[in-house]
């Protein structure tokens, strides 16, 4: 009996894994892990180390991806808008630099100063954090509340290629919902992006 039960559990687990390749990632409502990652300033940063935060805007993004580049100015704007309200942006580069040289730590530092980023830009060295979050592309947003509960997953807005033609600011609306004590809607969205480059 025990063996049968065990077989059933294994089968169920296998079926689940096959069915959903991102089963390991967070869904809205899950508690996200904190981390300690190196920033472009050379220091290690964690969410718990950020003072006066009412939540956290974790964005997996990078240097090389045109979709990530298209959003750089908008991420700077979002930090200017929501950082002072206690929703700081924490950008994490998940790519392995041996696959894409442009996403190396030195090139991150370069991009950080060239663009005058006003937010933390961290490197997921060893690629241990992005799989836990379930990030699959850049950019990929995870909005967390003060207790690191995931409140929104997805896109920054509904028009990557043209900031002037944005109709829905998904992320900004989600943060405003949290500020107002409401539940973000939609709580998740999708966007085209660059696949995360895994070490080979």
């Amino acid at each position: 009996m025990k063996k049968v039960l065990f077989a059933c559990v294994v089968l169920a687990l296998t079926a689940f894994t096959n069915h959903n390749q991102h089963a390991g990632g967070y869904h809205v409502g899950d508690v996200a892990t904190d981390f300690s990652l190196k920033g472009t300033d050379g220091n290690m940063h964690s969410l718990s180390g950020i003072e006066n935060a009412n939540g956290y805007v974790v964005i997996f993004t990078c240097n090389h991806c045109p979709y990530a580049k298209a959003y750089e100015d908008r991420i700077i704007q979002l930090q200017a808008e929501f950082g002072p309200k206690g929703y700081p942006i924490v950008a994490i580069n998940p790519n392995d630099p041996s696959v894409v040289e442009e996403d190396s730590y030195d090139n991150m530092k370069k991009r950080y100063s060239e663009k005058g980023f006003n937010f933390l830009y961290l490197i997921d060295e060893g690629q241990t954090i992005y799989p836990q979050y379930g990030a699959t592309r850049t950019p990929h947003v995870f909005l967390l509340d003060k207790n690191r509960v995931v409140k929104y997953i997805g896109a920054i807005d509904d028009n990557a290629s043209n900031a002037d033609k944005v109709k829905e600011r998904y992320l900004a609306n989600a943060i405003n919902a949290l500020i107002a004590g409401e539940t973000p809607s939609p709580a998740s969205t999708k966007a085209i992006g660059c696949s995360i480059k895994k070490k080979k």
Partner: peptide, 20 residues
């Protein structure tokens, strides 16, 4: 079609939107 959130699930609900 710029609003990918609208059509990615119409291609397949398992697709996150990452290329390729």
């Amino acid at each position: 079609d710029g609003n990918a959130n609208r059509w990615i699930d119409m291609v397949d609900t398992s697709w996150s939107g990452a290329l390729p």
